[in-house]
Design a protein around this nucleic acid. Structure first.
Lengths: 191, 191
DNA sequence: CTGATTTTGTACAGATCAGTAAAGAACATG
DNA sequence: CATGTTCTTTACTGATCTGTACAAAATCAG
């Protein structure tokens, strides 16, 4: 009962996510959030509680929505190596085509917000572990089918590949496509 | 002529660097900088011009001072692979022993400040290129001496290794030593 | 329609922000 | 010692910050 909300919870969360993603936590003001979401201050605080809590909700929304393309690309049929290559080429284009060079929000939050709040550090850690597990399972599959030559433990290979992948997204902040494409080929050579 | 300064320029720059390094640009207030350096607002603005300019000076100081250990480690005698391993083990301990998990300031600035200012993006790009060149020359050396098995172009291997190294520093923000050590072995396997 | 409940908009609070103005202090030169 | 120059300190500016108080508006139950 009571007066119904005039906004869509998901759309507001998506708008807040985009704002935090583009500017980072500290550089985003509550005024920015009001303008991006279209909500007044009262509504925003009533619905989400405050800047920090909205940030954490935006991170969860990011994990829910933006991880899906990664799953799709890595889940495609075909050789495992091609799937990883596809993922990396895809993020290179994504990063370079984005004028704001926002990169990966999970990495951004690990770099500039994890030291501030335990909840944010935990979020980053969980996301990193999730990606590691995804990589690990796919590498194990490639080893079972005999496609991949390396007989190193899948966990180790996954962690190494993940590290290269994250480095790629950092380098994507300022470097050009040619340099990033070199990273990809080197990364796939370990498998 | 005139009244002499009561502070040491280098020490003040180092203190400002540590503050920006630990908290990031946005979360650092001019008050923080005054307390960390011991300078009053007037002195700080008179000597450095303002927050943004002090940040850029702090970045240059970082590049001047904090890059030296990397040069030292990679310049040691012995197999090239051992040198790279030594570098990565060293940064793992560095990151994990640091309670603030500050990581690499060049990466931090690329992630949370490069999108804001061209000067900062240029700084990050230059530092990344410098590291790439350092890696490349060392890999080329290892190939000439026959130590390294891969015959891929040194630039490509350097870029890939650099990407893994940067990813390592991102993962070091939240992950544990065991995971990071896996990254190292995988990274060296490409060479 | 009345009353209870929730959302919304506005106004405001107190703190903090980056930066500046100006006066006094410390030196060098003459 | 007198003067000019630079640095230091303090006080202050106007803007912006996050968060809150509160009344008006919009719904539902009875």
């Amino acid at each position: 009962m009571g007066r119904p909300r005039e906004f869509d919870h998901g759309e507001v969360l998506a708008a807040a996510m985009r704002t935090f993603w583009a500017k980072g936590y500290e550089a985003t003001s509550t005024q920015d959030l009001c303008e991006a979401t279209g909500l007044g201050r009262g509504s925003l605080y009533n619905a989400f509680g405050g800047k920090q809590q909205l940030y954490e909700a935006a991170l969860r929304h990011y994990a829910d929505v933006e991880f899906q393309p990664v799953l799709d690309i890595l889940g495609r049929p075909g050789p495992v190596k091609d799937r990883f290559r596809g993922l990396m080429i895809w993020v290179i284009d994504l990063d370079l085509d984005d004028p704001g060079r926002r990169g990966c929000m999970a990495i951004n939050c690990a770099v500039d917000a994890a030291g501030r709040t335990d909840a944010v550090a935990d979020f980053a850690r969980r996301e990193f572990e999730r990606t590691e597990g995804l990589f690990r399972d796919l590498i194990a599959l490639g080893q079972r089918t005999g496609e991949l030559g390396s007989d190193r433990p899948p966990v180790q290979l996954a962690r190494s590949l993940q590290s290269t992948y994250y480095g790629l997204r950092v380098l994507g902040k300022v470097r050009d496509r040619e340099s990033l494409l070199d990273v990809v080929e080197g990364a796939l050579a370990v498998l």
